[in-house]
């Protein structure tokens, strides 16, 4: 028995280098969610385009990605073969969960995809546009109930930013958190809440069916195929994007970082990546290098500000 175990340990050690994956991507969420899908789409694209011979995805779910992030920062340090998927939600989760590990402890490579926030009302609502919503909000903030995802998430942050931009106390925002997209959608359709706020994709089919009216979208400019004014056009100076990114391990060299960045760039320009994005309806908001770094810093700053204003972070 002893020999058997010894032999297997030795064999395992010998076999290890041969089986090391070219890339190992951590999805810090349960299988099926957005980050998991992003990681698996990357896996397919990297393998199909022969950028990498073997790509493994592993899931470490929990607490808005902060559990996976902490594990990644500790275990992947200095290993150029390891990647982690993350996103804007992680920025908020790091702050609200007071996570000891932050995005400073990994090496962000690039923003990959993004989705804009939409505000909708039921078709028969008396709110016709952004101005109508702002007027109601200013008159009595509590009377406007906002249905969206979990507290402190992108939807909640967007609602807080809007209130702040129009001069309403963000702590007075009557935000009703729902645990799943469908649940929030049902409450909006049933007229249980005044407005709905979530990623555009959640509402798309209902907007097209005429059940919901979209009164604003959080992009900087009008988005092709979405017939809606931006928040800015509606007189509210807020723009926000729920983005997803890929980051590398901490402690890698500049050459290693450059090599990973090159691989990622090759991936996002590939046909299989673009096809996958089209099928899933994800917007290509690729942004890399120093521009991404600057955008990230800006997002972290504004998020931390609004979370304090809403009262979720002290």
């Amino acid at each position: 028995m002893k020999h058997f175990v010894l032999a297997s340990i030795l064999g395992g050690l010998l076999a290890l280098p041969a089986h090391a994956a070219d890339y190992k991507i951590m999805a810090p969420a349960a299988p099926g969610g957005g980050w998991d899908q992003t990681a698996r789409t990357m896996q397919t694209a990297l393998q199909d385009e022969k950028i990498s011979g073997s790509v493994q995805v592993n899931n470490v779910p929990g607490a808005g990605g902060t559990i996976g992030l902490a594990q990644f920062a500790n275990q992947a340090s200095g290993d150029p073969s390891q990647l982690i998927v993350g996103g804007y939600v992680m920025v908020g989760a790091i702050l609200t969960n007071a996570s000891p590990v932050t995005l400073d402890q990994v090496t962000p490579i690039a923003r990959l995809t993004g989705e804009f926030e939409a505000i909708v009302v039921p078709a028969k609502s008396d709110i016709k546009d952004m101005a109508g919503l702002v007027a109601k909000l200013k008159a009595d903030p509590g009377s406007v109930s906002w249905g969206g995802g979990s507290a402190g998430g992108t939807d909640h942050i967007t609602a807080g930013l809007i209130a702040k931009a129009v001069g309403v106390d963000p702590t007075k925002v009557n935000y009703i958190a729902f645990s799943g997209g469908g649940e929030a959608l049902a409450a909006i359709l049933g007229g249980q809440v005044t407005v709905g706020i979530s990623g555009y994709g959640e509402f798309e089919s209902q907007i097209k069916a005429g059940e919901l009216r979209i009164i604003g979208i959080s992009s900087d400019e009008k988005v092709a195929g979405i017939d809606a004014p931006t928040f800015k056009e509606g007189g509210v100076d807020v723009s926000i994007q729920n983005w997803r990114m890929v980051a590398a391990a901490p402690g890698i060299t500049d050459e290693q970082k450059a090599a990973i960045s090159a691989d990622v760039e090759k991936m996002v320009t590939s046909k299989s990546w673009k096809d996958a994005l089209a099928t899933k309806g994800w917007a290509d908001t690729y942004l890399a290098g120093d521009e991404f770094k600057a955008q990230l810093a800006k997002d972290i700053e504004s998020t931390s500000g609004i979370l304090k204003d809403i009262g979720l972070v002290k």
Binding site: G11, G12, H19, N58
Partner: peptide, 14 residues
Amino acid sequence: LSLPAGPLERFILG
């Protein structure tokens, strides 16, 4: 399914 692999798994599949 991602079940942790150890020396034995790597040895046999190696």
